[in-house]
């Protein structure tokens, strides 16, 4: 697992945005071979979305052949409610990029049969050849998607009852009115995320620092579902300085040094390639 540390949320957004853009462009997606991207909602990915929108506007990136799957959606909240994740994704991202609406997948929290909806979602992901890159954020308790503490680490897309803390935290989006916060959500499971060929998680702000520490400095534990990422072969966590507040100094230094070494290796490799091509 790589940990990338940047100064603030904007720098993290720029890094992750550039990273995803490079992955998509290197993949050279076509209609027959689209790039399948998993997407989160919440405040942490917004700078990343902003940066991606900028790249699309500059013509450096296109979502024409990108298929997206969102992580989660509330149950029973109308699709056009201002707090639904359909609304969030349209407002913050989809309305600005050149994605084909037919390539957008978000769980339907108003489906008559929620269990079938979840099963169909998993099947659709599989039919698209699995997710190439899953972008994620975390909650203050270290949950990824709505996989709150205690979620099975081998869970799949399913209905989840929200933790009381999450209802409290989300009430700020519902005029401070607890009674208006949905009690259930549909969410991809931890295993669904881990199935992706690559996972990139954005963690910013001091409020997430305890969760970050538990997820990467301690063992795999279902009380911090992000920690399951330790089992993933290709994972990247991008954080800002604030989010490292609870990490050991040693951990921070270790990952920073790792990035330096990596940069050096890449530089050398680029030089070698250059020399090799000049010899030709």
């Amino acid at each position: 697992m790589r940990l990338i540390i940047r100064d603030g949320p904007e720098e993290v957004g720029r890094y992750v945005g550039n990273y995803i853009a490079k992955r998509i462009n290197d993949f050279k997606p076509t209609a027959e071979k689209p790039f399948v991207l998993g997407l989160p909602t919440g405040s942490s990915p917004i700078p990343t979305y902003k940066h991606l929108i900028g790249l699309v506007n500059k013509g450096e990136l296109s979502f024409k052949n990108v298929i997206t799957f969102n992580m989660d959606e509330y149950v029973g909240l109308p699709r056009d409610h201002s707090e639904s994740y359909h609304t969030f994704m349209f407002r913050e991202f989809f309305s600005y990029i050149d994605i084909d609406p037919n390539n957008v997948h978000i769980l339907d929290g108003n489906a008559p049969d929620l269990v079938a909806e979840c099963a169909a979602y998993e099947a659709t992901i599989k039919a698209q050849g699995g997710i190439e890159l899953f972008l994620g954020g975390i909650g203050e308790d270290g949950h990824i998607a709505f996989n709150e503490p205690g979620s099975s680490l081998s869970s799949r897309t399913r209905i989840k009852t929200l933790a009381y803390d999450t209802i409290l935290a989300n009430s700020r989006f519902f005029g401070g009115d607890l009674s208006k916060v949905p009690r259930m959500a549909l969410t991809v499971g931890v295993a669904t995320v881990l199935d992706a060929r690559e996972v990139v998680v954005v963690v910013t702000g001091q409020r997430k620092s305890v969760a970050l520490s538990k997820a990467i400095e301690e063992g795999v534990n279902h009380l911090t579902t992000l920690s399951a990422l330790q089992l993933h072969p290709w994972a990247l966590i991008a954080v800002d300085e604030d989010a490292t507040a609870e990490l050991h100094v040693k951990t921070v230094k270790y990952f920073k040094s790792l990035e330096r070494v990596q940069e050096e290796v890449e530089r050398n490799k680029a030089n070698l390639n250059e020399n090799a091509s000049s010899v030709d």
């Binding site: 056009d80 359909h86 349209f90 309305s95 609406p101 957008v104 978000i106």
Partner: peptide, 13 residues
Amino acid sequence: LDAQKTFYTIRKR
């Protein structure tokens, strides 16, 4: 148009 509805329901942009 309701842009969001057009996007998600009619699936046009």
